[in-house]
Amino acid sequence: MATNQEDVKLLGVVGSPFFCRVQIALKFKGIEYEFVKEDLTNKSDLLLKYNPVHKKIPVLVHNEKPISESLVILEYIDEVWKQNPILSSDPYQKSLARFWSKFIDDKIVTSSFKAVYAVNDEKERQKNVEESTEALQILENELKNKYFGGEEINFVDIAAVFIAFWIPLIQDIAELKLFNAEKYPKLYKWSQEFLNHPAVKEHVPARDPLFAFFKAKYDALVSASK
C-alpha cells in the first residue's frame, strides 16, 4: 500500500478507457489514491496546471509531481511500486509490451473512434472498421495464454481494456461490426476473463448509464449531420 509519506491523486473521468487503465493498475498494485473528478467541458485549474500541454485526463499526481498520458502513467506506476509487476524486467519482453500497447492505441482505439464519428461518410467509416478488425485479428493471433501476460494480467492486458469493454459498447451504439466471439474466439474469451479479474471488475464503469450517455451524444451527432 502507499505509505503515509506518499500523496497520490488521480485526475480523471469515469467512463474514460484511459482513466480506467490507471485505476486498474493502481488497484492491481494495491495503491490508495484520491480520485479528483474532472469536468471536461469545464476543465479545472488543477488539470490545466498539471497537464498544460495536452489538457487531458488522466493525470497521476505523486507527491505533487504530475505524470500524464495513460501508458506513460502505467510505466511510472510499475517503476515506483515494485509489487505485482505489470512489466517484465527482461528488456526484450518490456519492449514487446510497449509495442503492443502502442499498437492497440494507434490501430484499434483511434480507428474505432473514427469509425463511430464518421456518421456521414460511409467510405471513411468502412475504412476505419477494416483497420480496426485487421488489427484485432493480429492481436487474436498474438494471444497465446489466458492473458497477454500469461497467467496474470500485465501491461498489455490493461492497455487493452478498451477492447474488452469499450468496443462492445461503441459497436452497439453505432451499429458497427467490430468484435464478436465467432470471429475472435481467443480475444473474446480473454475479454471475459479480464473483465472478471478482481482488479478490473471494480473499475470498469456501469454499462447502462454509460451506454445511455454515449448513445445520446451519438444520436445528436447523427441528427446534426443530416
Rank of each mutant, 00 (worst) to 15 (best):
T3L: 10
N4Q: 12
Q5C: 08
E6Q: 13
V8P: 00
K9M: 11
K9R: 14
G12K: 11
G15P: 10
P17S: 14
R21D: 12
V22Q: 11
K29P: 01
G30Q: 14
Y33T: 04
E34D: 13
V36S: 10
E38K: 09
D39I: 01
K43C: 02
D45N: 13
L46I: 09
L47Q: 06
H54D: 05
H54Y: 15
K55F: 09
K56L: 15
I57V: 15
V59L: 10
V61K: 11
H62C: 08
K65A: 14
S70W: 05
I73L: 12
I73M: 10
Y76H: 11
E79Q: 13
E79A: 10
W81A: 07
P85N: 09
I86D: 06
I86P: 01
D90R: 05
A97V: 06
F99A: 05
F99N: 03
S101Y: 01
K102D: 12
D105N: 08
K107N: 14
V109T: 05
V109P: 01
F113S: 10
V119D: 11
V119I: 15
N120G: 01
K127Y: 10
V129E: 11
V129K: 08
E131Q: 14
S132D: 00
S132M: 12
E134P: 01
Q137F: 10
I138S: 12
L139A: 04
L139E: 07
N141I: 00
N141K: 12
L143I: 08
L143T: 06
K146R: 13
F148I: 06
E151D: 15
E152A: 09
A159T: 06
A164Y: 01
F165D: 04
Q171N: 07
E175Q: 14
E175W: 04
L176A: 09
L176F: 08
K177Q: 14
L178N: 01
E182S: 13
Y184T: 11
Y184N: 04
Y184E: 04
Y188C: 10
Y188M: 05
K189R: 12
K189T: 15
W190E: 08
S191F: 01
S191D: 04
N196D: 15
H197R: 03
P198M: 11
A199F: 06
A199G: 01
V200L: 12
K201Q: 14
E202S: 13
E202F: 07
H203M: 13
V204I: 15
V204A: 10
R207K: 14
D208H: 11
P209F: 12
P209T: 13
A212G: 02
F213M: 11
F213G: 00
F214N: 04
F214R: 07
K215Y: 02
Y218F: 15
D219L: 02
A220Y: 00
V222H: 03
V222S: 04
A224H: 05
K226C: 02
